[in-house]
C-alpha cells in the first residue's frame, strides 16, 4: 500500500448546485418564478406573506412551499389565504436540517401544483447562516430583517446579506420603542452589500408592504415567461 494525493478542486456544494439547476429547469418549463424568502426565526416572513397575499396579486397565481424543521404552524396560517401551500419538513428524512437545500425542494416537486401557479414563494427555515449557502433553484433571494434584531446583523451574517437582492426591513412600527438606530443599520448594510434594494415595512400594520408587492410584480414579469 502507498499513499497518494489526488487533486480534486471541486466546490463542495457542486452536488447541491447541480440539483438546484435541475429544479430551476423544471420551474422554468412551467413558467413559474421562484422566490427564496429567508430570515432569522421570528423576523416576520409568514406575517409578511399573509399581508402580501391577503389580496389577489394582479392575477398572479401564488403558491407557497413552507420550510420548517417540524410542524405546520406557518402552513396552517397561510392556508387561510386559500392559496396552495405545501409543507416541507426537514425533520423526517432530512436530519432536521436548519435550512432547505436543492434536494429537499426536489423531493417536494411532485406535490407542488406547478401548472396552476405563476409564482412560488419558498419560505426557508428561519436561520441567517445555512440557507444562504444552499441554492434551491430560485430566481431571486429576498431576506427579511426585523429592526428588533439590532444594527449589527449585516456585519455578523455578511453572506446572507450579500446574497439577497432585496432586504425587507420589517417591524418599523416598533422603531419608536427601540434603541435601534436605522441609519446605523443602513450604514452596516451598505458596507456589506452596497446598493442592495431596501424596503422599510411593517407587516403588522401594512406600512410599506406595497413596495414588496410592486417588486414581486416586476420580478414575475422579468422571469416568469415560459421557456
Amino acid at each position: 500500500m502507498h499513499r497518494s494525493k489526488v487533486r480534486i478542486v471541486e466546490d463542495a456544494l457542486d452536488a447541491n448546485n447541480t440539483i438546484a439547476r435541475a429544479n430551476r429547469a423544471d420551474f422554468d418549463c412551467h413558467g413559474v418564478t421562484v422566490l427564496n424568502l429567508m430570515s432569522a426565526p421570528g423576523a416576520g416572513k409568514t406575517t409578511l406573506l399573509e399581508r402580501l397575499l391577503a389580496e389577489p396579486l394582479e392575477g398572479i397565481r401564488v403558491g407557497v412551499l413552507e420550510g420548517d424543521v417540524q410542524g405546520s404552524y406557518d402552513s396552517d396560517r397561510l392556508a387561510a389565504l386559500h392559496i396552495p401551500v405545501t409543507q416541507l419538513n426537514t425533520d423526517p428524512g432530512f436530519g432536521a436540517e436548519c435550512h432547505l437545500d436543492a434536494n429537499m425542494v426536489r423531493s417536494a416537486l411532485p406535490s407542488l401544483p406547478l401548472a396552476e401557479i405563476d409564482l412560488l414563494v419558498v419560505e426557508n427555515v428561519g436561520n441567517l447562516v445555512c440557507p444562504a449557502e444552499f441554492r434551491v433553484g430560485e430566481d431571486a433571494r429576498v431576506m427579511v430583517c426585523a429592526v428588533t434584531e439590532g444594527e449589527d446583523k449585516p456585519l455578523k451574517y455578511p453572506l446572507m446579506f450579500r446574497t439577497c437582492e432585496v432586504v425587507v426591513i420589517n417591524k418599523i412600527d416598533l422603531l419608536d420603542h427601540l434603541d435601534f438606530e436605522l441609519d446605523r443599520f443602513l450604514y452596516n448594510l451598505d458596507a456589506v452589500h452596497p446598493g442592495v434594494e431596501q424596503m422599510l415595512v411593517s407587516a403588522r400594520t401594512g406600512e410599506g408592504v406595497e413596495q414588496v408587492r410592486d417588486w414581486l410584480l416586476r420580478l414575475t414579469a422579468r422571469t416568469g415567461v415560459p421557456a
Partner: peptide, 13 residues
C-alpha cells in the same frame, strides 16, 4: 471558496 482541494488515498501496490 469552499472547495475540496485534494484527497489522500491508500492505493495497493
Amino acid at each position: 471558496e469552499l472547495e475540496v482541494e485534494y484527497i489522500e488515498v491508500e492505493e495497493k501496490e
